[in-house]
Design a protein around this nucleic acid. Sequence first.
DNA 1: AATTAGCAGTCTAAAGCGGAGAGTGCTAAA
DNA 2: TTTAGCACTCTCCGCTTTAGACTGCTAATT
Lengths: 343, 343
Amino acid sequence: MSKAAFKRRDSVLKIIVSEYIATATPVASEAILRHYSLGVSPATIRNDMASLEEEGFITRPYTSSGGVPLDKGYRFYVETISGQAGLPGDDQRRIRQLMDAAVDEYDRLLKIAATAMSQLVGNAAIVTFPKSVECKFKHIELVEMNQYMAMMVLILSNAVLRRQTLGFNETVSQQLLGDTAVKFNREYSGKTRKQIAGNKLDLSPLEKKILGTISDIMASEDMIEYDNSYLEGLRLMLGQPEFVQRERMLGVLELLEAKGWLKQVIDWQVTEEGVRVIIGGENRESSLHDLSLVVSNYGVPDQARGTVGVIGPKRMDYSKAISAVNYISGLLSELVARVCRDD
Amino acid sequence: MSKAAFKRRDSVLKIIVSEYIATATPVASEAILRHYSLGVSPATIRNDMASLEEEGFITRPYTSSGGVPLDKGYRFYVETISGQAGLPGDDQRRIRQLMDAAVDEYDRLLKIAATAMSQLVGNAAIVTFPKSVECKFKHIELVEMNQYMAMMVLILSNAVLRRQTLGFNETVSQQLLGDTAVKFNREYSGKTRKQIAGNKLDLSPLEKKILGTISDIMASEDMIEYDNSYLEGLRLMLGQPEFVQRERMLGVLELLEAKGWLKQVIDWQVTEEGVRVIIGGENRESSLHDLSLVVSNYGVPDQARGTVGVIGPKRMDYSKAISAVNYISGLLSELVARVCRDD
DNA sequence: AATTAGCAGTCTAAAGCGGAGAGTGCTAAA
DNA sequence: TTTAGCACTCTCCGCTTTAGACTGCTAATT
C-alpha cells in the first residue's frame, strides 16, 4: 500500500469516527463521500474499510452494513484531535459568568462547574472535592450545644471542613471549650496528623478525647479518595441512543449511584497531568467497559487536588469534552490556588 | 345494593389495588378469586368491577381487560391501611444499626437514612437537611487564608453550617480576625437576623463588611426551602415497570435532577404533622402527576424541621412506605432533638 | 334484587411473512 | 491500485395471522 493510500485510509477512519459520533448510526462508504469528497469511488472506500476492519479499528454490526468504530478506532481518533482547538469563546464566557456568581461558596461552585460541564458536552459530568495530599490541621472550633454535648468544627488545609458532635460524661462549659480550642490552634496549626501524634503534650482527659477525634478525622481524610463529589447531567447521558435498551441504562445508573468506580479513576489519575481520555475497555473496572471518561486533575500539585471529568458512552464528542474538561479544570485550579496559596 | 354487597365491593377494590401493586398487571376477575375466596362467582366480581369503574375507582387499559386502580382507588386503599402495622422488627434493627454507625456525622447520617429508606421501599427516597423556622446566629469563626483572604465559618442554630471566603482590600491579621470573631460571638449569639440588624454597634469597616456577609447568609438561609438534600435509590425507582417507556424515564430523571418539585412538597408539608401520602394527580406540580409521594416532617416543632419521604410510581407499596417514613422520621427527630435541645 | 352460567365478542401479544431499501463483497476490467 | 457492476445479505417496516386472556351481555336461577 502506498504512502498516499495509507493517508487516505487514516482519513477514512477519522471520518467514520466523527460521523458515527454525530449520527449514532453505522457509517456507509457512500455516506463518507457525501460529506467529504476524497476523489475516489465508493469501492475504494470499501476496500479501506475492509482493511480497517481487519486491523481492529472498526467493526460491522452485521454483515454488509456500515462501519462503527471500535476502541482502537476511537483511540486513533482521539490521538489525532488532541492538542486541538479550545473551548469556543461563548462557552468560556458563559461558564466564567456562572462560576463568578458563586465564587465564594465553595460547594456550590463545584456543583455549578459540574452542571455547566455536563450541559456543554451533553453527558454526565463529575467534580470531586479537592483533597490534600496529606492534610494539615488548620483550625478547630468548639461550640457548646448543651451541657453534655459540643459541636466540633474542624478546618483542615485547603478548606476541607468537617463537623462532628461530641458527647461528654461530665459537664463542660463554653469557657473550657474555648480555651481548649485556643490551645489546640496554637499548638497544632499547620501540622499533619503524624506530627500531632508525635508531639505529646500534657493533656487533660477531655483534651485527649478531642484530640483523638481530630486524629480520627484526619486519618479518614487521608484515606478517603473523594470526600464528596457532584455528579450532574445524568439525564443528558441517559438520553443518548446507546441507552435505549433499558438494561444498559439501569446498569449505568447502578454503577454511578454506587460511586465505587470513582476510586478507580482517581487512583489512576493522581499522578497524571493534563486531560486524559479513557476509552471503553481501557477502563480497569469492567462495568465501565462501554463508557468513556475524559478526566483531569485540578488544584495545586503536592497540595490540594481534585478530579473533574466527563462520563458518557464511547460515542462521545471527544473534541468538545477534552476542551471543556481542560478549560474547567484550569478555572478550578485558579480558584483553588487562591485559597491554598499560603498553606 | 345491600350492605353486604357494598362491603364486598370494597374488598374487591382493595384486592385489586394490592394485587396491582404486587404484579403491575391489570387484575382480572378470576385472578381475584384465585387468591382470595369471596364465596361468589367471577361474574359477580365483574359486576362489582363495572360499578367501581363507573364511580372512578378503577379503569381498564382497553376494553375487556383487567382493572387497574385510578387515583381515587389508591386513595381509598391508603385510607383503609393507614394507621396499620409498623415496620418489621428486623428492618428497624437494621436501620438503627446503620444509623448508629454514623450518629456523629450529621451529613452522612442523613444520606444513610435516605439510602436505607430507598432500599426498604424499592423506590427513591429523599431526606432534606433540617431547617430552622427562623435561624439564629450561633457562632462565627474567622481563619486567615492569606494576607487578603479569610475563610468565614458560620454556625447557625441547629447545626446549619456555612463557610464562605472573604476578600479584603487591606491586609488583615489572624489576631484581628480572632478578636472580631470573639466580639461577634459575644454580642450576637442566639440572635435572629432582625435582632442583629436592630442592634447597631460601633463597628469598623472590616467588621461592617463581615456583618453584612453574615446577614446575607442568614437571610438566604431563612429564604431557602432546602439547604441540601439527599436523593437516593433512583435506580430502584427507575427499575419499576412503569418506566419501561424511556420517555417517561427521562422525564422523571429530569424532574428529579431539577429538584424544583421539592419546594412544592415542603411548602405543603410544613404545617402538617405525621405521614402524608400524596397520590398522582393530588400533586400540585403537574410533572408529578403520575408519581406518588409519602412524606413526613421531622425535627423539633417551631425549631428545626426537615422533610423525609419516598417517591415512586403510583403503584407503590404504600403500606411499607408509610411505615418506613414514619419510623425514619421518628428516628431523625430524636437525633435532631438531641442537637437542638438548648437552642 | 342479586347472583350466576355460558358464550360471543374484544383486544393484546407474539410470531411469521414479504417486500423495499440500504450497503456490502466480490469479480473482472481498467 | 482503483473502479464499475452486480449479486447477495441483512435490517426495517408493516401486514396478517393465531392463540389466549377477559370481559360484557343475556337469560336463567336463587
